[in-house]
Amino acid sequence: MASITTNGPDHDPVSLFETHRTRMIRDRMLANITLAVLFLGFLAWSIWISRFTPDRLAAGIPRIFEYFGSVMPSLQWDMLFEGRSAEGRFPAGSVGYWYNDFWKYLRLIWETILMALTATLLGTGLAIALSFLAARNCTPYPWMGAAARRFLEFCRGVPEILFALILVFAVGIGPLAGVLAITIHATGALGKLFSEVNENASMRPVDGIKAVGGSWFEQMRYGILPQVLPNFTSYALWRFEINVRASAVVGFVGAGGIGAELSHTISFYSDDRVTAVLLLVVLTVTAIDLLSERARHTLIGKESLK
């Protein structure tokens, strides 16, 4: 074995390090260039396929500003809180004029929230049931677990609005189609999360319940459920936030809620009604997010105190 201080150009540690370093830099540069070329190629292809060319963008942008200009409400300070006139109309420039259909919107927002709530409850229930079948450590038969996992994958793979489209065709226009569509998608999404939580649960309590002569249902109810319930609740609350957003949109295909009004307003009018509905939707979604976030934090806080 040669010692470190061996002389000669090939064995000089400094030059060895230098050649090694040059090679490494060259390799890394080569990899980076390849990636950059791939990235730029993909970008060029994407721009070509989506026809997102500068001239189209240049032509589009003024139209966007024009459109947003036309949908802004024209509020006037002195008229802002003006009541109805003798003929029962709000004067132009007042909030009342802007939100002439306020009560209709509010009723639809209420329907939207109820849709999300019902779908969350149903979806959570179904997801809990399926998650015990789907979790590898819980499933009574492996084939049943595989089947449940494929089913959940399908449910969460297809977007809500697509289910809504199909269900509107099957059960008719109205919120029922929306509730069912969101339920199916939420079942898929929550079922996957729940089954992962189940798979991380300790199996010792399950063995304990098995040893007292408990059935599979009792093993799950007493062995697993107490361990995973706090996580389930937190996930279900989080899903409720997402479902509110979804139920505001399924109306686009006729599945109830504020979505139908939103789609109708945007498609047929380009005046301040568009911003009126949009603002209400944004406020609702944000308010629900804040409430649910707070509920989740108190829940988690309680857990960590125990």
Partner: peptide, 15 residues
């Protein structure tokens, strides 16, 4: 806060 599909519809109206 505004869903992507809603943005889609808005931009369809605009461009």
């Amino acid at each position: 806060g505004i869903d992507q599909v809603v943005w889609g519809l808005v931009f369809v109206r605009a461009v």
